[in-house]
Design a protein around this nucleic acid. Structure first.
Lengths: 355, 355
DNA sequence: TATCATCAATAAATCGATTTACAGAATTTG
DNA sequence: CAAATTCTGTAAATCGATTTATTGATGATA
């Protein structure tokens, strides 16, 4: 009977003793190094099973320069998008034998920089950063300053230092322009809840540039506003308030999920019917959009693919399988056409432009 | 000039050397132990600032039996509820000087058990487990088997071994019963997407028992179904299909957010108007519920308070400030009355019971 | 003044793994 | 058969902190 009152966990030395070999040999077997006689390897494996041995990832990581830990910093964990992203990252990291440490910057750039520094404290092998703002934000800056291995995800465009992975916001928004103008809309409102996010700026540019290219006479209004408080709500209110019904846009393209919610709420509040009076397309799909009435046409981001690709890219860098120039990877999005805007819907009021 | 090609991070020994003291002294200063002469303490702090020293949490944790790491295992990260829970936990853990390691069991009990074991591998000081099923599931079982410090959150009732924290599902559901019966409803459908979750079973019991107590003649139908695939969808379909409009319930109480979405979709599909034909109350509030039409009356869970309380409870156990019997803590919920069911709404078709 | 506490500081052990450097055995080569 | 080479296995160093045991120095007490 053991002397310890509490059954201490078996260490690699216990396994070694039980198998009648040295700790170094056990380590070799566990890490799959070939230079071990089969007989000894078997005895080690038996001892591991018998003692119910499990490696301490902390002790294991300490010795090595490259620790088998990957950090992920995302702007928030309460939105399904980043929730799904993190879930995908965790899955991919585990499959590659890495641990994932997750932290939310809660949309604060200051916190983001601190979290990146903290990931560096953990001596992570690499970091996946979904910046609050863009590849020029404080988090990315800290990555550079600390010379860390990293991949930037979402809310980014290309970068001279890091690989980036994001939805093809530009192309997807251009497609929305094609779609809405194809339906005959010539006066569109763009609404975005924040001017901070690079992704949202890109969506705005994608739509606007394509729309102008298709028809220079198109009227594109924009209501942009900084994030916090109810400012975005009030600004969209004011837009509709100060605008005669005859001068209303015939379609709205909301540039984020949050924004879509705002717009839908405001339209309902004012009794403006969708899609009869106004068509609505939102960027970023959500469960509820197919259930609400009318169901909402939305651009869906392939979040799982993005997670997969981002992790694969990072791992390639970490493991030295890629030392080429940084690559900007864009994932194609899909537009899910629903009731709030679609071919069956006529354009509300066709008006020829010309003030 | 240093000889290293890459500027190695400063260690505690570098700080010690720079301050002209021993590593042990530096450690004392950093951990706030009093037995250090003020002059030396100041020199240490200066050296820390100069060398830009940051402690390696990994190395720091290794020596101590109780590592300053807390594990959190939740059923999923894609729902706002658990996302918010994790955010709250992370905040609380950080304030107490702990690191939080998060993992999603993805609604799999097997994975849950494995993740709990993995938290034990990290030698976490304690674990917050939001079980897939209940306090009797595989994760909790593993916690017990490994004799870990833990607090169980959500989807649990009381437990003889661990403190638990959850919304007061029973009372909140009883309140829904009071509310709906108070409005005159005498035939209610309860719909839950899964029979697995303890929380949902409790909500069912809370409503049913109170309803029966208020009026033994109340008719409560239940459509329960196991999670995956589209089974829940089909079962709610069938319910309405095989039921003459005259025999329809006058209200639905959906027992989860997901379920609310299902029910709302199905009612719309069949052209059943809410609240004119049928009233709807959902358990678990979401952003979109105040925007959708009609806006949906829902029970909101105080998720941030729950996170706060759960972490406080765990820390008290860890730090030995509490060795009393395990406590079941219930957080009161709030019902947000909106258009889908409310006092202004008349009960659709009043019918006297009696088959 | 001699003896006993008290206080500050440190050297060395420790946590649990990995890795390095080296030794002995087995095998191949000249 | 001796020398060179390859295989296996181990002792010891290492990662970066914390903790323990111990040593001096200082102050208090008899």
């Amino acid at each position: 009977m053991k002397r310890e009152e509490r059954p201490r966990r078996a260490t690699i030395h216990d396994v070694a003793r039980s198998a009648g070999v040295s700790a170094a040999t056990v380590s070799k077997v566990l890490r799959g190094v070939a230079t071990v006689r089969k007989e000894n390897a078997d005895r080690v494996r038996t001892a591991v099973a018998e003692l119910d041995y499990r490696m301490d990832p902390l002790a294991s990581s300490l010795r090595n320069e490259s620790r088998r830990i990957i950090g992920a910093v995302v702007p928030d964990l309460e939105s399904p998008f980043f929730g799904a992203l993190v879930t995908g990252l965790q899955d991919a990291a585990e499959r590659a034998g890495y641990h994932l440490i997750v932290a939310s910057s809660r949309e604060s750039e200051e916190r983001e920089a601190e979290l990146v520094a903290r990931m560096n404290d953990w001596r992570v092998a690499g970091t996946l950063l979904a910046p609050v703002r863009s590849e020029r934000g404080r988090g990315a800056e800290t990555l550079r300053a600390l010379d860390m291995q990293a991949v930037l995800v979402d809310r980014v465009s290309d970068d001279e230092r890091y690989d980036t992975v994001s939805a093809d916001n530009y192309q997807a928004s251009a497609n929305v322009a094609d779609f809405l103008l194809g339906l005959g809309h010539r006066h569109v409102l763009l609404h975005g809840a924040t001017q901070v996010s690079k992704a949202i700026r890109t969506r705005l540019a994608g739509f606007t540039e394509r729309a102008k290219a298709l028809d220079a006479g198109v009227q594109v209004d924009t209501v942009l506003s900084d994030a916090d408080a109810d400012v975005p709500h009030r600004s969209i209110c004011k837009y509709f308030e100060t605008r005669a019904p005859a001068d209303r846009p015939t379609a709205v393209f909301s540039l984020s999920q949050h924004s879509t919610l705002r717009v839908a709420a405001e339209l309902r509040r004012r009794g403006i019917r969708v899609p009869e009076d106004i068509a609505l397309v939102g960027f970023d799909d959500a469960d509820w959009m197919q259930t609400t009435w009318p169901s909402i046409t939305a651009v869906a981001q392939p979040v799982h693919t993005m997670a997969e690709h981002a992790m694969a890219t990072l791992l390639a860098r970490i493991e030295g399988n890629n030392d080429g120039a940084p690559v900007q990877h864009l994932e194609a999005c899909e537009m899910l056409v629903r009731e709030s805007a679609g071919p069956e819907t006529e354009v509300p009021r066709r008006r020829t432009r010309g003030n």
